[in-house]
Design a protein around this nucleic acid. Structure first.
Lengths: 196, 196
DNA sequence: CCACGCATGTAATAGGTTACATGATTTA
DNA sequence: TAAATCATGTAACCTATTACATGCGTGG
């Protein structure tokens, strides 16, 4: 459902599957991803359902393109999705699961190492989004007032992503501090021989 | 892969599929979810692979249970996963996608309404995690020092979730302010008749 | 002529959801 | 005796990933 609606939204101007993948690799990469092998059959299905209409078209470079445009029915489906409540599909965070069960390794240094790696990944991702925000702000004397509506909505999504990532990076740092404290407690306070 | 490893981690003590679902509905709900219809065949597959060993066992209440325990091979697979790098599977955020393309409704008030709803959802979720953290801290005079290793790792995951959610709630508030500013700009600064 | 980017697709597999079927035991 | 909870499972379907097949056109 979500993928179909995202594709509908991306086909503002007529577009081929190949174009849409670029969108997922660029503008939409921080909230969704899809490969060509998923995009092509999905577009076909949507055409069968009457949400899209395709025609073959010669390309400047390479073979013929199949270019899709939205139908009125497709636009209606898109607007239904956009006006519906926020879709909070059960998100899955494998790295949090790893952290949650890492106690069973019985070695806090593993957790420390893991949190460090996680911090780095998240920070790199944060920088990526900050760059995207910077690109939006560039050459705009009245930022964010002089953004187009599309750009303004991009900004809103970037702000959520950036703040969330910064917070996660901070939480990793906090976790590393908690581990350091816990480790020093283990070497200092806990006697090796039980007190009985 | 991740689901299998999470199940392995959950089967610290021998457990039946029915028990494991409760874990997903309680302790693990903020980073993963799984239904019984997925859990049962996954456990079977893992047993065929030699990661688990099951035996039927009478229950206090209701029909016979099929109780699984980890094999040495299963424990090895779990430890490989825990020692591997953070698994950053391409996360999908449908609600961010909705926001990203909401410009095509051509009505900022829709975006305003949506951000308000989103804020509420995220805030409720934040409260849930804060309650879980509170339950960990309760009755612990030396919190977080007197947590078991398992509880300490739970705390680490809760801290990441709580900080991230707080940040997203703040970003929604920021977005609502930006929209207010943008709307007042539209009614004040932009002339209804183009200048030229 | 070869590598690269353009362009469309198929096949096999894995991961996940929804709905349904079955039946035991306990509690109101 | 009806409802709730315990307990296991199947079937159909949808969503997503990985690997592979095919072929055009341009630039080095």
């Amino acid at each position: 459902m979500s993928l179909e609606c995202i594709l509908l939204a991306m086909i503002r101007e007529p577009a081929a599957g190949y174009d849409l993948r670029k969108e997922f690799a660029q503008g939409a990469r921080h909230f969704w991803s899809a490969e060509l092998s998923q995009i092509y059959p999905t577009l076909e299905r949507m055409e069968r359902r009457g949400w899209l209409k395709s025609r073959r078209q010669a390309s400047q470079k390479g073979p013929q393109r199949r270019v899709y445009r939205r139908t009125a029915k497709g636009a209606a489906a898109l607007h239904r999705w956009l006006r519906s409540e926020p879709v909070m599909g059960t998100e899955r965070f494998a790295y949090i699961a790893q952290l949650a069960y890492m106690a069973s390794l019985g070695d806090l240094r593993q957790t420390e190492r893991f949190l460090g790696q996680l911090r780095d990944c998240l920070f790199r991702f944060q920088k990526l989004l900050e760059d995207a925000e910077g690109a939006l702000a560039q050459e705009r004397p009245r930022f964010p007032d002089d953004l187009s509506d599309e750009e303004f909505h991009s900004l809103l999504t970037l702000r959520i992503g950036i703040r969330s990532l910064r917070a996660k990076v901070d939480a990793c740092d906090e976790g590393l501090n908690l581990i350091a404290a816990r480790q020093s407690r283990l070497t200092k306070d806990v006697p090796h021989v039980p007190l009985d």
